[in-house]
Amino acid sequence: MIGNFKRNMGYIFGFMSFIIMIITGFLPLILGEKVLSGWWMISHATVAPVFSIFLAVGALFWVKSTGFGFNNGSESKCAKKIVWVFLILFIPNTLSILFSMNTWFPSATQYSLLSIHFYTAIAMFVLAGLYLNFSHNKK
C-alpha cells in the first residue's frame, strides 16, 4: 500500500513537472516572445532535472511492473506503444539541449539542436495527451 502510494505520488509529481515544463517552454512563445529567456528560462531549466529524474525512475518502475512486452500488464497495447515512443523521444529531446550547453557545437548547429528540442517536445506533449486519452477510455 505504502509502496503503491509512493509510486503514485512519484507519477503525479513527475506529471506535474512535465506540465510545468510544457507551460514554461511554450507559453512565452505563444505570448509572442521570440526566444525563451528571463524567468521562463530560469523556471524551465530548474524543473528540467526534476522532470528527468522522475521520468527515469518512473520508467524503471513501469517497466518492472509491465515488462518489455505488449501483452503483459493492465494497460492496452496502444498505451504501451505510446509510452515507449515517449521514452525514445525523451533521449533526443534532452540530449539536444544538453549538447548545446557545451562548447562542442557552433551556433549554426545550435539552431538545429534547438529545433530538435522544440519539435520533440511538441511530439512528447501530443503523446502525453494521447496516453491520457487511451488510459481514460480503457477505464
Binding site: S52, I53, A56, A59, F68, L87, L95, M101
Partner: peptide, 27 residues
C-alpha cells in the same frame, strides 16, 4: 546562480538519459 549548480543539473539529466536509454535498448 544556476551556473554554479549547472554541472550538477547536467549530471542528473545525463544520468536520467542513461537510464531511459538503457531501458529503450533493452526494449
Amino acid at each position: 546562480n544556476a551556473f554554479v549548480f549547472r554541472p550538477w543539473l547536467k549530471g542528473v539529466i545525463y544520468f536520467s538519459v542513461f537510464i531511459v536509454a538503457s531501458l529503450v535498448i533493452l526494449f
